[in-house]
């Protein structure tokens, strides 16, 4: 009976483990394997060519352009999201009339697939008949319709703003979760000690929110770095690769240009970058758990 009990938990995790290994583990190995080989357009492996694929990637100006834009995209979207989400979470955590409705509205973009959001915005931003132009012209802010997506810098900036918009709900949710776990008695104590709302924010809320902010940064970096639909649907990386980031460039290489060796090399490079962030995340989670665990043990 003892040994049966001992193997029960292992039996319970094995199915999930196998599925994850198969769907997530295997492609990584396959990509690593492929990246070292010459590959035909149709996916046939034609033997090892050493680091040729990587060399090709690193001599490709489009790769550097995409890499650079990926950095801008990630930093701008994550930074903008955090700057907006924290005050929003603070507002939504406070009592006011219509808070329920406000929460629902702020969370709405999360409910809708990025693809649909991007499709609607592409139409809303249409240079000729877009309703954004209609609104701005009604308000006499512009005299002529603006071609929002026609030039790369303008298109990219627009895409970043939409990226921020769709990242706010998730980030706000993390912050709301954090705020709801704030120790109420500490706030009461601080009021007795004479802290004003601003002092509470500065000396209690922000320091206590630190771990949640850290997690939000890392998770958002990972999600935004990986996000394809907005740019893909709105401009497909164009015009003239001017809005390409690594994921869109990778997707084009793999499924448009059939440069599979190069694409798998880029996949692997991105995997490496992701791995670094993931390890940061895992370490952060484990540290948070150690703290929580220690507190739990002490209270026993």
């Amino acid at each position: 009976m003892k040994s049966a009990l001992r193997s029960t938990p292992l039996l319970m995790i094995v199915p999930s483990l196998l599925l994850a290994m198969f769907i997530i583990g295997y492609p990584i190995i396959d990509l690593a394997w492929t990246s070292l080989q010459e590959v035909s357009r149709f996916g046939q492996l034609r033997g090892f060519n050493g680091w040729d694929n990587f060399a090709e990637v690193f001599s490709d100006p489009l790769f550097y352009g995409s890499l650079w834009r990926t950095v801008i995209w990630t930093v701008a979207v994550v930074g903008g999201t955090l700057l907006l989400s924290l005050p929003i979470a603070l507002i939504l955590n406070d009592e006011f009339y219509g808070r329920g409705l406000a929460r629902v509205i702020i969370m709405l973009p999360w409910a809708i697939s990025l693809t649909m959001t991007a499709v609607v915005w592409r139409w809303g931003l249409n240079g000729r008949a877009g309703l954004l132009n209609a609104t701005l012209m009604d308000l006499h802010l512009i005299a002529e319709p603006v071609e929002w997506l026609a030039t790369a810098p303008m298109a990219f900036a627009t895409e970043i703003l939409i990226g921020i918009l769709v990242s706010i709900p998730f980030t706000t949710t993390i912050f709301l979760g954090g705020l709801s776990s704030m120790p109420q008695d500490a706030y009461e104590a601080s009021m007795v000690d004479g802290a004003k709302r601003w002092d509470q924010l500065r000396y209690l809320t922000l320091p206590l929110m630190r771990p949640f902010i850290n997690i939000a940064i890392v998770l958002n970096v990972i999600y935004v770095f990986n996000s394809l639909p907005i740019i893909w649907v709105m401009t497909e990386g164009g015009p003239a690769n001017g809005t390409d980031i690594l994921v869109t460039y990778l997707y084009k290489l793999a499924f448009r240009f059939g440069q599979l060796g190069k694409a798998s090399a880029i996949s692997l490079i991105m995997f490496g970058v992701l791995l670094v962030f993931t390890i940061i995340y895992v370490v952060m989670v484990m540290r948070a758990e150690d703290d929580g665990g220690a507190a739990g043990e002490a209270s026993k």
Partner: peptide, 13 residues
């Protein structure tokens, strides 16, 4: 953390 996009080529294969 592994998003489908990074693995999409491997998954497709």
């Amino acid at each position: 953390m592994m998003s489908p996009i990074v693995l999409v080529l491997g998954l497709f294969r």
